[in-house]
Computed example of a mutant assay.
Amino acid sequence: MEGSGYQVVYFGPQHPGVPGNIAYKLWLDGDRVVKAEVVPGFLHRGFEKMMENRTWEMNVAMSYRFCVEDPDHLEIAYSLAVEDIYKAEIPENAKWLRMIQAEMGRIASHLFWSHFIGGSIGLRTPAYWAVAAREEILKWFARISGHRVYHNLSVPGGIRYSLPENFKEETTRVVEFVEEKARDVEEALLGNSIFKARLKGLGKLSIEDALNLGVTGPVLRASGLRYDLRVHAPYLNYDKVRFEVPVGASGDSYDRAVVRFKEIHQSLSIIRQALDEVRPGESLRVKLGLTAPVGEGVARVESARGEYMIHIISQGGRKPYRVRLRSMSMPLLTTVVDHIVSREEVTIADFPVILASLDPCPPDLDR
């Protein structure tokens, strides 16, 4: 489209409307975006290849590095894949704790998303409430793992750290606090006339289009398809708890917001159920040999942004032979954006709102 008379704008990684380490080259016809070309590579570290040159234990610290907003699902998936290679069965206590970790991570990610979506349209006050609620979750992680953002809590074989004495009481307190604040944020955003006007009808995806474009997670469910790995391919003990899978109707940016807030409440319910099953003092980990057997390990989890899969090949020894990660955000930043821009009248003011509604994790492309 070069030389076609369109205005070309570089929507770079320093722009507050871009969701992180990524940029877009935009072709504008007036204020309408007619083409968007993604420019990745701002955080390329070659995570897969780095993991192939580190030991099984060292790779726990590598497994979550490409999505700072939702590291826990990636950490859990890596541990599940390694356990698949070893054919190891972890203790029931560890399964329940991993579920609590995963749902705490999902809530923290969705709260962070509500901060970004609120900020993208100027609703800063509820965005700050969301950050305050997320902060309590980060403090909770720090108390049980020693780390606020990256946790090293789930490791091959189970849970790394023993539980603090007041684990159940402290977790219940955090759940109740987050539930109250999340409801405040939800009401302040979803009920706001400006929020509705900016998001309703914007960035629509049908079920068929979402599937064809490779979309999973909340964006797919907002289009109306009730698909969630925790239900359709259960792992850990998700088949032993009761929860609903929220879906939307129109598949627009507003529906994606509604689905995520509903998911927060479902995650809080899962945490409460899992917490009832935790037995303090019981085993949390089985020891695995330093040298892995020959074989393959595959794990799929329902992360905050959709289905994440990791495939590891072992030829025996202290390191994996091959590690392959399935990106959750690749379709959100590429095929979905192309689809929406080519079919809707997307203005330059709409573009960052659409990106925020998709909630991608850009470093996920640079793995």
Rank of each mutant, 00 (worst) to 15 (best):
S79C: 13
S223M: 08
Y64F: 11
I194C: 03
S253N: 12
V9G: 00
L202C: 10
V174N: 00
R45W: 06
E263K: 03
K262N: 15
T334Q: 05
I117V: 15
R322S: 05
R32Q: 13
V34D: 02
S120P: 01
G119I: 12
P16D: 12
E244D: 14
R143G: 00
E208C: 01
D70T: 12
K25G: 05
P13V: 14
W56S: 02
I194T: 15
R343V: 03
A88S: 13
Y235K: 11
S79N: 05
G158T: 10
A132V: 00
E176D: 14
T172A: 12
E83H: 04
V247E: 04
S342Y: 01
E89I: 09
R322Q: 09
D252T: 03
M328L: 13
R106Q: 01
K25R: 15
Q273A: 06
R230L: 06
G306Q: 12
F261R: 02
V231T: 07
V60D: 03
I264Y: 01
G306A: 02
T291P: 00
M309A: 14
I121S: 07
M330V: 09
H15N: 15
E179R: 15
G46S: 10
P16G: 09
E277W: 04
I144W: 04
L275G: 00
R148F: 10
H311L: 13
E135D: 15
V8H: 02
F167K: 00
I76S: 05
E344G: 03
L365K: 12
M62Q: 08
F11H: 02
K87I: 02
L205D: 09
E75I: 04
A23D: 13
S314E: 07
I354E: 06
G118K: 11
M99C: 10
S114G: 08
C361E: 08
H151S: 06
S4Y: 09
I144Q: 02
Y161H: 12
